[in-house]
Design a protein around this nucleic acid. Structure first.
Lengths: 343, 343
DNA sequence: AATCATAGGTAGAACGGTTTACCAAACGCC
DNA sequence: GGCGTTTGGTAAACCGTTCTACCTATGATT
């Protein structure tokens, strides 16, 4: 049996109350000597407080929940890593929930985590066709009184959207940077493979793309835009179509799809960047080591995880204070996959 | 305030005991009618049991802990994904701990998880130079009475090694398969980039490599073996040395390093597989999409995660029964990165 | 009428802590 | 000697469940 506070009380001849007071460093007039005795006994008996008992009374579990679409995706893994690291620094634990991009599971996991009594939830929602599940999540969270922060994926459902703090990338800016880079190299026929249009991030990246185009005085041609799924396969398939249309550059809205583009190019004997320029988004650690090391828009995924935890911790510590969302500025990392066209 | 069992008792006019009995489906003579009343009230009031209170008395948290070196590494992420999925199916939650390959953190996290009262621990140890930290983990776990299972990374520290169940790959066999494949293609000067020798998995893969060599009647030449770190960078660097020595094929003991090899080849204008064959290990989902889609030894990482959770669950359910370790057979996936030499 | 089953349900002690209100002894002071 | 103050410490309620041992009708049996 684990030693309890009672065992310490017995061994020191003090009361349970006293022991608790000492162990929690409450400023309550207890003599030096008693304190020492308690600490000594605690160490000797290797005392560890029973967290269930503590939680029962303090109403805190020092546990946060993280819901993400796919831990196997390095971008999300990076967020998880940052969140976990920060949790540990703050003496919290992190429960991992993986939805496999199934929005129904978002709802399930929100409920599971709430049942478990987590102190807060970090939610990276799955992309859903109808918004219903994201909406339901927010509704449940709203009723729960527990703090939650949206990470990476913005949700816009009427009034709800603004009712939770978030940690996002400025996707519009990222899309703008990527496209402007290609334009500045001299490309004018640029294909764009977007993420699923159900996701705000996808839309914003596309908006940035369009803005850059317009700023350059180019007409935006919808046929050069294809809706992908953020998976490699869709990058492979859709880039085929775009290449057929004669584009000299492709902006893939995430790196995974950019890899697909590279595969397609390789399959056709098209040399990157000589014959085709490619820009990705995310800058996965991997991209650096790619065939033609990938030019990509870097998102600070790890920092976003850290930031999200900090935000939750802040809300827990100061529930009254108003919170605000954070928007990270993405950064263009220029490598070898982009070059002036038509050499 | 969340509704408690007491609220239900009040609303139904029954006692707390009765409500608890009903809600837990204990076969205890309670009339149909009372049961219905309780369930109805529970639903109406949206009752959710307080897990802290339940844990306090049942001594179970329905929570497992997972300690891994790097969630950002797809192989580990895959394990985590499998473990998480199975946990959910069993009504458990999974706490994620990421050590960044720091063996000290293994120890820290084991303690943290034990303090939290997890029901069991899944441990993928970090590679340590001196074995001390792995040993300490096992020692702490041994004292804790909580079940633990070692995943992927075997530990051999005297008597301890066998005192925990494990879920491993047959790394020796994998190394053997990889090398035999290269030999059967006609390669005779094969380089090998191993993982850190502190890890058993690294050693075993090398042993398999050597066995295949000897079986083919080839003298094992130590200079063709280089100790890598399992990171891409080391694959890049060490493959350079091996290529300089004139190898026609390289067995990289994980895919990340194989990517490094591919980079090195590309940098030198060496075409894979025509001029250099490359075999990896892990078969990350990614490898399929690589320059020359990578031939690799596939480990069922996801299944290993699932299996580990099952094992823990089994031990929890039947503490008396003897457990046994599981060793998965890896499988050689032949793609385009290997070819007969000297064309 | 006395005895015994049985059905239906409850009281109350855990579980291991936290925290507040109170207490007793010693001390200082006039 | 009486009174206030400080010092050091404790009793006990409480958190929300679980679960065993017991209780009380009611009907059946002899």
């Amino acid at each position: 049996m684990r030693t309890t506070i009672r065992d310490i009380a017995l061994q020191t001849g003090l009361s349970v109350s006293t022991v608790s007071l000492v162990l929690n460093h409450k400023q309550h007039r207890i003599s030096e000597e008693s304190c020492d005795r308690v600490f000594k006994a605690a160490k000797e008996l290797n005392y560890r407080p029973n967290q269930a008992a503590v939680s029962l009374i303090t109403k805190r579990t020092n546990t946060l929940g993280l819901i993400i679409p796919d831990i196997t995706n390095v971008f999300f893994a990076e967020i998880a890593k940052g969140a976990q690291a920060r949790c540990q620094e703050l003496g919290n634990s992190l429960i991992l929930c993986n939805t496999n991009d199934n929005p129904e599971k978002d709802v399930d996991y929100v409920n599971v985590l709430l049942d478990r009594g987590v102190d807060g939830i970090l939610l990276v929602t799955s992309v859903s066709a109808g918004k219903s599940s994201a909406e339901r999540c927010l509704e449940i969270l709203g009723r729960s009184e527990k703090p939650a922060v949206l990470v990476d994926r913005e949700i816009n459902v009427g009034a709800n959207s603004a009712s939770f703090p978030g940690v996002f990338s400025d996707n519009e800016h990222g899309g703008y940077l990527a496209t402007k880079h290609l334009l500045s190299l001299g490309h004018s026929k640029i294909g764009c493979i977007t993420g699923p249009m159900g996701a705000q991030s996808s839309k914003h990246r596309l908006f940035g793309h369009i803005r850059a185009l317009q700023e350059a005085g180019l007409a935006f041609e919808p046929s050069l835009v294809r809706e992908g799924s953020y998976h490699t396969e869709s990058g492979f398939r859709l880039s085929g179509e775009l290449i057929d249309m004669g584009v000299t550059a492709i902006f893939a809205c995430n790196d995974m799809m950019a890899y697909g583009v590279c595969r397609q190019a390789a399959a056709r004997g098209i040399v990157i960047p000589k014959q085709l320029s490619v820009v990705g988004f995310d800058d996965l650690p991997f991209s650096e080591f790619f065939e033609a090391p990938l030019t990509s828009v870097k998102q600070p995924a790890y920092d976003m995880g850290v930031c999200a935890v900090d935000k939750i911790a802040g809300i827990i510590a100061f529930p009254q204070e108003p919170w605000e969302s954070t928007k990270f500025r993405p950064q263009l990392i220029i490598r070898k996959s982009t070059l002036a066209p038509g050499v």
